[in-house]
Simulated scan of single mutants.
Amino acid sequence: MKRHSLIAAAVLATAAVFSPLTHAQTHSNPPGRTAGEVVDDSVITTKVKAELLRAQATKSLKISVKTLDGVVNLSGSVESSEQMDSALRIVRGIKGVVDVKNNLQLR
């Protein structure tokens, strides 16, 4: 019984690792982009979201993050210019970010 559980866990772990790669290769490759480029952008997006949630000034904000070719596009609303500056500073500090497009709106 324990062996079956270990095998099932290994299969699930393998599927979790390769599922995003397979999805990127078959479903979300814009023309002219490799699966690696799509995965790189998704890693950057994940890092940006994690850092925005971690930072006190931006953790409660609803900021949309999209990345294409290392260019991060931020949209949503913030309550102050300090929050906007903080979000931009955080994003610019993440490895792999080439540029930041600021589409954040002050409320």
Rank of each mutant, 00 (worst) to 15 (best):
T22P: 00
T22H: 10
T22M: 13
H23Q: 11
H23Y: 15
A24N: 07
A24H: 02
Q25M: 09
T26L: 14
H27Q: 13
S28H: 10
N29K: 15
N29A: 13
P30C: 08
P30T: 13
P31K: 14
T34P: 01
T34R: 04
T34Q: 04
A35Y: 05
A35D: 01
A35I: 06
A35S: 11
E37D: 07
V38A: 03
V38R: 02
V38Q: 05
D41M: 08
D41Y: 07
S42C: 06
S42I: 08
V43T: 12
V43K: 09
I44T: 04
I44G: 02
I44V: 09
I44N: 04
I44A: 01
I44K: 02
I44Q: 04
K47R: 13
K47S: 08
K47H: 09
V48E: 00
V48K: 00
V48W: 01
K49P: 00
K49E: 11
K49L: 07
A50V: 03
A50Q: 02
A50M: 08
L52P: 00
L52G: 01
L53W: 04
R54E: 06
R54Q: 11
R54N: 07
R54P: 00
A55T: 06
A55E: 08
Q56R: 14
Q56T: 14
A57C: 05
A57I: 05
A57L: 08
A57Y: 05
T58V: 02
K59M: 10
K59V: 05
K59E: 14
K59Q: 14
S60E: 14
S60D: 15
L61A: 07
I63P: 00
I63L: 02
I63F: 02
S64M: 08
S64P: 00
S64L: 12
V65F: 07
K66L: 11
T67M: 02
T67N: 01
T67H: 00
T67P: 01
D69C: 07
G70E: 04
G70N: 05
V71D: 06
V71R: 15
V72G: 02
N73F: 07
L74G: 02
L74E: 06
S75I: 03
G76T: 09
G76R: 13
S77A: 15
S77Y: 13
V78L: 10
E79C: 04
E79F: 11
S80V: 09
S81A: 13
E82M: 09
E82I: 10
E82L: 13
Q83V: 11
Q83D: 11
M84W: 02
M84A: 14
M84K: 15
D85A: 15
D85S: 15
S86E: 15
S86V: 09
S86I: 03
A87K: 03
A87R: 00
L88S: 06
I90N: 04
I90Q: 04
I90G: 05
I90D: 05
V91H: 10
R92L: 07
I94A: 04
I94C: 06
K95I: 05
K95H: 12
K95D: 14
V97E: 04
V98R: 15
V98S: 11
V98H: 11
V98D: 11
D99Q: 14
D99E: 13
D99L: 05
D99S: 11
V100D: 06
K101Q: 14
K101E: 10
N102A: 12
N103D: 15
N103T: 06
N103L: 10
L104W: 09
